[in-house]
Every structure is written in structure tokens, then in C-alpha cells.
Nucleic acid binder design. Structure first.
Length: 320
DNA sequence: AAGACTCGCAACCGCCGAGCA
DNA sequence: CTGCTCGGCGGTTGCGAGTCT
């Protein structure tokens, strides 16, 4: 069974936007006669359109029960929740939103909700936290873009550019630390391909690795404290692994403030507790040349941290 | 002021499955 | 069972409006 055109190509049927006159003809006909056979409707209604075009015009625009206007917060939440469960089943999602068409929901999701989820660090396809640091780097770009420095920020900081640069520095700093975390904790992440070599390790070896890695991480953070700029004019500095979560929360808070989503109940935060495959740009400029670390883990050496595309300066920034 | 660029959305395209002869 | 038709669906396109430079 192949594909059959809904309309004969030699009929020279009209395409493109509908005129008010066409709308009125279609509306009148369907109101009086209903729609049982879309192929017959255009001829009977006096329209030089294909039946499919008439059906779409009716279902997406002329139908009397269509709800107009912006989507409410509740509708947004329903769409996001259903999309996370159903995927791109727009027609099914539309059945839960009376008055909204699948086309309208699809357009709304692709143009608004998709961007909103991305800004929150959520993959709009999987509804899971974005698994690499491109998001963070892009986020830092957005923060430094004058178009995205909103009034809220302007009102709370006399120098938005300086603030944006501080955030960018922090994001880059976090990117480095998170890459380290991935390498260090690879053995205990069973979903991580890096852990393949450890799949057969005994539990005490893994435990020891965790302990060693945690200690190493803490010492690393302590050592790096003096090299990380005092970004917020405070005396605080990440000095141990437990403070990292606070740091992440702070970053999340800044994201929320930028987005002005303080009263959105669908607010979601980045999940920094998973350590998926990461890219390793030391600066936003390197983001395009991102490389995934995929080497065997060796707890006794940092040589595995070396990787094509990552020069010494990347690690020197941390270890100096 | 005007051309370039971006964004949102209506409409179209192409594929698929159900139903029917 | 096969082939045809139709309706439905998701992906894509193109245009107009708004914004930027």
C-alpha cells in the first residue's frame, strides 16, 4: 500500500492562506451538512481546495469549540507532563486540552516550551537533565548577551555585564569541576561506559575508590580555592564536595531569576548528581570542539584526564 | 529609513493504518 | 487476500510581523 495523493495534481487547486470568503463558504457548508466525506466537501461547498486542506482548516481554525488566546500555566504544565509521558503524540495530548488543536499544541511546544525546558537544563525530547555541558556553556553565552539581561537583573545589579561575566566564569569553573567528577566517580556509575572496567570489581574496591575519590576531590577543591576568583565579593569558596551542592543550588537560583519563573510550579532544577558524558571546553570558544572523555579510568594517575583537544592550560587552571 | 535577520504560526507534505469492496 | 480510499498524524515549510543593525 503506497502513498496516494489526496488531490489530483492536475486539478490546479488553490493552496496557501485561506480568505475570509473561503472560510465562510466552508463554515456554512459544514454547519448545515456536517462533514462525512472531506473529498466531496470542497466541490459541494464551492471551494477550489483539496479535501485535506478543508479538513485541516476546519479542525485547526474554524471549528466552533476552538479556544483562542495564550496558553495558561495549567495548560503548559499539562502539555509538559503529557509530552514527557507520550512523546510527540500531539493528537493524544490535544484530547486532554479541550479547545486546543494538536497543531496548536505542537507549535506552542516547539516554539515556547522547548526553549523554556532548554533554559532550565532539561532535554525537551527526553525530559531528563541535559547530559552534557553544552547547556552550561550556552547558558553562559545567554547570560552575557545583552538581549537576555532582563530588567530584574538590571534592578538588582548596577553592573549587569560584570554580573554576567561572573556567572560565566562560574559556569566555566563548574564545567571543569563536573568533568573531574565524572572521571573520579566513573567507577560507581553503572550507567557510565567508563565504568565498564569496574563492572567485575568487588564492592570493597569500589568503596575504596569512592573514599579515595572523595578525598581527592575535597583536596582538589581546597587547593583550587585560591585560584578561583572571588566571584561574588564574598569570602566563600568551594572547599569540599558537600559545598558543591550549595554551589549548584546557587547557580540554579540564578537561572530562575534570569528566567523570571519564580511562580512557576513546573520549575525544575538541573540534576548535577548524575555524571553523564561530558564535553570539556575550558572556555566557551572551545564548545564547538567539544570532546567526550571516553578513556579507561586509572585511579593511580591523572594521565587519563588528558584528552585530545584538551590542552594543558585547561587543567593548569585548576591544579595551579 | 531600510535592509537583514529572527520568530511564530498557519498550512502543507508525506506516511500510515483502518475500513471497505 | 489484495488494492484502493480516506482520515489522521507528525514533520516541515514558507510567509508575515516584529526586531535588530
Amino acid at each position: 500500500m503506497g502513498r496516494y495523493p489526496c488531490c489530483k495534481v492536475d486539478e490546479d487547486l488553490k493552496k496557501g492562506p485561506w480568505t475570509p470568503d473561503e472560510d465562510e463558504k466552508l463554515m456554512d457548508y459544514i454547519t448545515k451538512n456536517g462533514h462525512t466525506n472531506w473529498q466531496l466537501i470542497p466541490k459541494k461547498a464551492g471551494l477550489n481546495r483539496c479535501g485535506k486542506s478543508c479538513r485541516l482548516r476546519w479542525t485547526n481554525y474554524l471549528r466552533p469549540d476552538i479556544k483562542r488566546g495564550a496558553f495558561s500555566i495549567e495548560e503548559e504544565e499539562i502539555i509538559i507532563n503529557l509530552h514527557s509521558l507520550l512523546g510527540n503524540k500531539w493528537s493524544t495530548i490535544a484530547t486532554h486540552l479541550p479547545g486546543r488543536t494538536d497543531n496548536e499544541i505542537k507549535n506552542f511546544y516547539n516554539t515556547h516550551l522547548r526553549k523554556k525546558l532548554l533554559r532550565l537544563g532539561i532535554d525537551p525530547r527526553t525530559h531528563k537533565p541535559i547530559s552534557d555541558l553544552n547547556f552550561l556553556i550556552n547558558l553562559s553565552h545567554q547570560f552575557t548577551s545583552k538581549h537576555n539581561i532582563n530588567h530584574h537583573l538590571m534592578n538588582n545589579n548596577n553592573n549587569p555585564l560584570a554580573y554576567a561575566l561572573r556567572v560565566q566564569a562560574r559556569v566555566t569553573e563548574l564545567a571543569k569541576i563536573q568533568q573531574l567528577l565524572q572521571v573520579l566517580f566513573a567507577p560507581i556509575n553503572t550507567n557510565n561506559p567508563l565504568s565498564t572496567n569496574f563492572a567485575t570489581s568487588s564492592s570493597h574496591v569500589i568503596t575504596n575508590n569512592v573514599a579515595t575519590n572523595t578525598q581527592f576531590l575535597d583536596s582538589l577543591l581546597v587547593n583550587s580555592c585560591g585560584t578561583i576568583p572571588n566571584l561574588d565579593n564574598s569570602t566563600s569558596c568551594i572547599s569540599n564536595s558537600s559545598e558543591l551542592s550549595n554551589y549548584q543550588s546557587e547557580l540554579n537560583s540564578k537561572v530562575d531569576n534570569f528566567e523570571g519563573l519564580s511562580n512557576s510550579s513546573s520549575k525544575k532544577h538541573l540534576d548535577y548528581n548524575s555524571f553523564p558524558s561530558l564535553i570539556a571546553p575550558s572556555s566557551p570558544d572551545q564548545a564547538d570542539n567539544a570532546h567526550v572523555i571516553n578513556q579507561d579510568y586509572d585511579p593511580n594517575t591523572l594521565s587519563h584526564l588528558n584528552h585530545e583537544g584538551i590542552d594543558d592550560s585547561f587543567w593548569n587552571d585548576i591544579f595551579q
